[in-house]
């Protein structure tokens, strides 16, 4: 599939008798930012480790950056193409920020000039250039996280896996890292982002997947909210009437409108398209709108609902 960065089908990992990841199928297109959500122990890290060929899969297939997972001949090629920020930053504490990046750049086989250029560009982006010769042991957690992100990018990978880049950071450091993620998104890099943070996922990701051993659902944050909620539009009128309700029903579909006091409650599938239609129908029927609001389930509610019920929406 052209433009496909990740294609996984039935990806499964068992540790002994424990199934850590069960039958995960997903596709990521080039340039997409994908958020992988799930509670502790959901299998996010395990999935990333399989997709980066750090651990073997028990079953299923996956093609990542045109390399087949589990095929030995493809392994080095795959690792050269992708970057990984692991859960633990794993920097060499007594080495400087520059030395940490330099070592990895060399392992990726970059020539001297390219390496120096990339390191300087990245450390400047991370606002760490002035500190390049300071041992990272003296850095704050947020600064270390930035060095580790820079390390994952030092060879200009086309696909980056970030395993909870903002976990354990204070709000300010987390914000700093999030801004870097947004900048990466602007650069059109494909990003696979593991996170617990729904707000982060919502702001940064084009699509999210919710995992609890199995992949419960995938879609854009907006889509998930809509798909899960049975979205409702609430229209407050000067005076609600059956006639106005009928006019709206004629546009949106029968049985979808309910009158409650001076409000109309309308079930919608696609609020962006249908709300203007509703408003126009009301006005045409002589109704006067005081307020029109969208009642929707937030991504957080979707997440909690799925995680707890493990209901599988279509």
């Amino acid at each position: 599939m052209p433009g496909s960065m990740i294609h996984a089908e039935g990806l499964t990992k068992q540790f002994g008798t424990l199934t850590a990841v069960d039958q995960v199928s997903l596709d990521l297109a080039e340039g997409e930012v994908f958020g992988f959500l799930g509670p502790n122990g959901a299998g996010k890290t395990t999935t990333v480790r399989m997709l980066t060929s750090l651990i073997s899969k028990t079953s299923g297939v996956a093609v990542v950056a045109d390399c087949e997972i589990g095929k030995e001949a493809d392994e080095l090629k795959l690792r050269a193409r992708i970057g990984l920020l692991p859960e633990n930053v794993g920097l060499y504490e007594n080495s400087t920020a520059y030395e940490n990046l330099e070592y990895f750049g060399q392992l990726y086989g970059l020539d001297g000039a390219t390496l120096r250029r990339n390191i300087e560009r990245l450390l400047r982006t991370m606002d760490l250039w002035e500190k390049k010769d300071v041992p990272v042991a003296t850095f704050s957690k947020g600064m270390k996280q930035k060095v580790a992100i820079a390390r994952a990018l030092v060879h200009d990978p086309i696909l980056v896996f970030l395993d909870e880049p903002t976990a354990n950071l204070d709000p300010e450091a987390a914000k700093m890292v999030r801004e870097i993620l947004l900048a990466l998104k602007k650069e059109k890099r494909t990003i696979f982002l593991n996170t617990h943070n729904l707000d982060e996922a919502q702001r940064i990701c084009d699509r999210v997947g919710i995992l609890r051993t199995r992949l419960l659902t995938v879609g854009s944050p907006r889509e998930l909210e809509t798909r899960m909620s049975g979205n409702r539009t609430v229209v407050k009128l000067e005076r609600a009437s059956e006639a106005i309700a009928g006019a709206v029903e004629a546009q949106i579909g029968s049985g979808r409108v309910e009158v409650s006091g001076d409000q109309l409650l309308v079930d919608v599938d696609d609020p962006d398209r249908q709300n203007p239609v509703i408003a126009a129908a009301i006005v045409a029927a002589g109704g006067r709108i005081r307020q029109l609001t969208q009642l929707s389930t937030s991504l957080e509610e979707v997440y909690l609902k799925l995680i707890h019920e493990e209901a599988l929406p279509s």
Binding site: T52, L54, L76, K77, R79, P86, G90
Partner: peptide, 14 residues
């Protein structure tokens, strides 16, 4: 101790 094996293993090194 530094947990640096995982990033090291993720480079193109056998």
């Amino acid at each position: 101790v530094e947990k640096s094996l995982e990033p090291l293993l993720s480079t193109p090194t056998t």
